[in-house]
Amino acid sequence: MFHQNLLEQILDLPDAPLLIQEVSSKLNEERVRREIFYNEIDESMKVEFINGEIVVHSPVMKRHNQATGLLYKLLDTHCYKYKLGFVGFEKIMTVFTRNDYEPDIVFFGNEKAKDFKEVQTLFPVPDFVVEILSKSTAKNDRGVKFDDYETHKVAEYWIIDPDSEVIEQYLLNEKRYELNLKSSNGTIKSSVIKGFEIPIRAIFDEKLNFETLQDLLK
């Protein structure tokens, strides 16, 4: 609805053709920068392409890394056990219409994952995304990424704050994200990853994570 209203506002302007031409020119320049970006990045870099700009990420704090690792361990074990698809983390470059992101954790169901190659470096829009907040990424995680994931129909999006140890679960409902859960306790159940349900504390507590992992392996 927002995009439709914006388009109508532009078309009402007398200089709409000139404005559209200018936007087209800017986007063409951006496409050139994006190609350069693809050619210059390598596996050692944690980097994204957002609205025409190259965003290089600094090293993460231990609590960020720990939350990522603990959740990835559980997700990957569950998905491997039940052959549900591919779980990636840290440097999986996902390609959207305009931008390229490397979310902290991604999941692709079998429909997408069956065509992946061992040497693949660029991946399609995921079915499920997790972002672990940090001071430098929170604005994008809650802003442009949130909007992009929603627009491109990422069915489930988890935002995790490792400082307050709170998780937010957003589910896509009629093209819009709805907050399904925000908590630091209890359990969380994925809508996309069949059968995946864990204690929220297992994302932050190593001992509970190990116990949960043992349960998953039974």
Rank of each mutant, 00 (worst) to 15 (best):
Y72N: 11
L70A: 02
K73F: 02
E30D: 11
T151G: 04
E165Q: 15
F96H: 09
I54L: 06
I132F: 02
A155F: 08
P199Q: 07
F128D: 00
R98K: 14
S191K: 14
F96S: 03
Y72W: 11
S190N: 05
I160Q: 02
Q214L: 10
H3M: 14
Q21L: 10
T121Y: 08
E178N: 06
S44K: 15
F86H: 08
L11F: 01
T94D: 07
E90M: 07
K207T: 10
N99S: 11
M45K: 14
K91Q: 09
E8W: 04
D148S: 15
F146Y: 13
F37H: 02
N5Q: 14
E35K: 15
H64L: 05
F196T: 08
Y101K: 00
Q4A: 13
L122A: 08
V166G: 01
V47H: 00
T212K: 11
L181E: 00
S164T: 13
E90T: 13
E156D: 05
L216N: 04
E211S: 02
T121F: 08
K62S: 10
D115N: 14
I167H: 04
V87D: 05
E178C: 07
L71N: 06
G195S: 05
F146R: 06
Y82W: 12
F128K: 04
L19M: 09
I10K: 02
M61P: 00
V125Q: 02
V95T: 13
K194S: 15
M61I: 02
D141I: 03
E35P: 03
D76V: 05
E43I: 06
Q21M: 12
N39P: 01
Q21H: 12
E111V: 00
S184W: 01
V56I: 07
S136I: 00
L84N: 05
M45F: 12
R201T: 10
P17A: 01
V166D: 07
F86C: 01
E150G: 01
I36F: 10
D115E: 12
N185M: 12
Y38F: 09
K189V: 07
W158N: 06
A138M: 11
V125P: 06
L179K: 14
A113Y: 07
N39I: 04
S184P: 03
P126N: 05
I198R: 04
S44T: 15
V166N: 11
V192T: 12
E131Q: 06
W158K: 08
E53H: 04
E111D: 11
V56H: 12
A16R: 11
T94E: 01
Y101N: 04
Q169K: 13
